[in-house]
Amino acid sequence: MNWILGAMVLATLIPMYAACQNQDIWQKMLAFASIATKTSVAIIVISVLQDDWFIGMVGSIILSVGNASLMLLAQVLKRLNQTNPGY
């Protein structure tokens, strides 16, 4: 079953590269959102394959809470752009 994990890590590298390469802040946010989802799904896959309940719990908590931080960040960025455009 290790091929699944290998493929997942490979898939996570794509948005990481995109985040480094792109200068626009919204494109970076997209890449970060993608990284967040992919890593937490990978955590859950690891937990199921290892049969470890607690890692899986951490994974699903990250999945349900981690995105909220990105939403807050998006709101803050929008506010920032409204007060001083071009920043």
Partner: peptide, 30 residues
């Protein structure tokens, strides 16, 4: 391990779509 996976399914479904909406909203207003 169904309880964990069902919770993960549910939160994926809700949070990812809502995050998509929030990102679309914030970037389009800009």
């Amino acid at each position: 391990e169904w309880p964990l996976l069902v919770l993960a399914l549910f939160s994926l479904l809700v949070w990812n779509t809502v995050l998509g909406y929030v990102l679309a909203y914030c970037s389009s207003v800009e």
